[in-house]
Amino acid sequence: MVSDALATKPARGHIPEDRITLFLAGDVMTGRGIDQILPHPVPPRLHEPWVQDARRYVELAEAAHGPIPKPVAFSYPWGEALAEWARAAPDLRIVNLETAITTSEDWWPAKGIHYRMHPNNAPCLDVAGIDCCVLANNHVLDWHYRGLVDTLLTLEHARIKAAGAGPDAARARAPAELPVPGKGRVLVFAAGCGSSGIPDEWAAGSDRPGVHRLPDLSAATLEGIAAQVQALKGPRDLAIASLHWGGNWGYRIPPAHRQFAHGLIDRAGIDLVHGHSSHHPLAMELYRDRLILYGCGDFLNDYEGIGGYEEFRGDLVLMYFPTLAIGSGTLLRLELVPLKIYRLQLKRPAAVEVEWLRARLDRECRPFGLTVRHVSATHLRLERL
């Protein structure tokens, strides 16, 4: 079972040397409407069936909740998350960046939605202290191969590691290596599945840029990942599998996802499974004391004011702060911080909204023998039943 250290909270601002605390989030979309309110927006023309101007998404958010002063500071979209990062002081911050960083005008014609942020707006990632952007998703090539290459170069220039995409298959498959001075190293192995909407043509080739797209969730695919992890993982390394899989809405966990996540822990030595693609948080599981996040939900987007799927409350998002034991990978603690997207910024939700999210997460986690409880009026914690 989970270590008794799950209930032991280190002093604020100090993380002991035998453990690593991470910040994890699901989809971060800083393009389109959010890009338009930042200081250096790309031209707003879109190639969507219903919206042809990215500024329309700003108008929808303003119609819902009031005016947004423009341009905003690079720190603006993160809002209250900035204070939470300062409080929790995680060793590393890892997100799924679902936005190309490019001025390319060569949009992928077979897709109806195209996200991009101007490279000169990349400081918004720097001000958030992001250490690693997972790119194995269904939007990083929205602006074709040049868009991906621009994204990789921009992140490299900003000294932010990338995982799950690259200029060729070998580098798309390679993990991001994130050293934590005095503690060890975190390896982020990232991949995406067709079930999340990643086109077949986006798979990186021997001489073609692209994403690390898994052909399936078979035993052979699992063994390929296991061989790679075992060849690279050292005794003080923690290995994360960051997977873009499944649809956008609904709480059902496909049995194949659960089987594959268990296999990553059993066969590959993965210490934490970081799932994303769903627009709202999904169930969590502890398997052999390792944390599985089946779907982290969106963290930042420009969907505010758009109707549909209100029952899932996609405007309520989560910050995940897992603390893992170095050497064993055991989960010691998982703190959850609810926030709300409001005026294209992360704000504190009302108490009733925090309780709604806690109850929904608790409902989904109970079949896995877990419960979600309040630590305070604004913070939650995962525990065993």
Rank of each mutant, 00 (worst) to 15 (best):
G13V: 14
I15E: 15
P16Q: 05
D18A: 15
F23W: 08
L24G: 13
A25H: 13
T30I: 15
G31L: 01
G33W: 02
G33M: 12
I34W: 00
I34F: 04
P41D: 14
D53C: 07
P67Q: 08
P71E: 03
S75W: 01
Y76P: 05
P77K: 15
W78D: 02
W85S: 13
A86T: 06
P90F: 14
M117H: 06
N121H: 13
A128M: 08
D131C: 07
C132D: 12
L135I: 02
N138V: 08
D142L: 07
D150K: 12
L153F: 09
H157R: 14
I160P: 00
A163D: 02
A165F: 01
A170P: 09
A172P: 05
L178H: 13
P181G: 10
G182T: 02
R185C: 12
F189A: 00
A191G: 14
G192F: 04
G194W: 00
E201N: 10
W202R: 11
A203D: 13
A204R: 01
H212L: 01
S218L: 04
T221Y: 00
L222S: 12
G224S: 04
A226E: 12
A227G: 14
K233L: 05
I240N: 02
H244P: 03
G247Q: 08
P255H: 10
H257W: 06
R258S: 12
G263F: 04
D271W: 04
S278C: 11
P281H: 08
L282E: 04
Y287M: 12
I292Q: 01
I306P: 03
I306E: 04
F312H: 15
R313A: 12
L316I: 08
V317D: 06
L318Y: 03
L318G: 00
L318S: 00
M319F: 10
P322D: 00
G329H: 01
T330W: 09
R333A: 07
V337K: 07
P338R: 07
R343Q: 13
K347F: 05
R348S: 09
R348A: 10
E355K: 08
R358S: 01
L361I: 05
D362G: 08
C365Q: 10
G369R: 09
V372L: 08
H374I: 06
